[in-house]
Amino acid sequence: MNIFRLLGDMCHLVAIIILFLKIWRSKSCAGISGKSQVLFALVFTTRYLDLFTSFISVYNTVMKVVFLVLAYATVYLIYLRFRSTYNSESDSFRVEFLLVPVAGLSFLENYAFAPLEILWTFSIYLESVAILPQLFMITKTGEAESITTHYLFFLGLYRALYLANWVWRYHTEGFFDQIAVVSGVVQTIFYCDFFYLYFTKVLRGSGKMTLP
């Protein structure tokens, strides 16, 4: 474990908690892409199947359970508890355009042609594009509440910190996970446009982000 990965995991946790609390307290999921949240729940489900087969550390196990519980709880809030506030017409991204290529690629490019390994690879590729429905929804509605932009900021920052973690691990222990690194770079690039708007608009206290 290194400081970059720890900070990354904390940013990830903060992002997920920000979103959950926003929906829970405002009793509304307006402006939130349910599709992205379903994709994230799928990412955690396919990645954390080793929860019962391989023990790495208490931290690893606890965080996996926390991420799974919060991901499914958020999906529950959107599609069941506060479904009347869900903007399904704005959340119109065709997720099959993500799932099919990601599933195909995970069969083609993986470390081992074994069920758990292919599911892990699927989760890595899927995570890199899972935020697209949310970013698409924001471009469609032309705006995002500031709390939603803080959620996206921490979510984008988490994988950027993981890139630093991989540089650190490469130089200190020769660790190099090519699939995770390439996907992590792609994932972080998707946030660049958002980061620009976030720093130029939201942090200038203009409240919510309105797209040009």
């Binding site: 991420f67 490019e109 470390y111 973690n165 660790f175 190099f176």
Partner: peptide, 10 residues
């Protein structure tokens, strides 16, 4: 494809 790192990250 490269070696199969033990997936010790979240």
């Amino acid at each position: 494809s490269s070696e199969n790192p033990r997936h010790d990250e979240l």
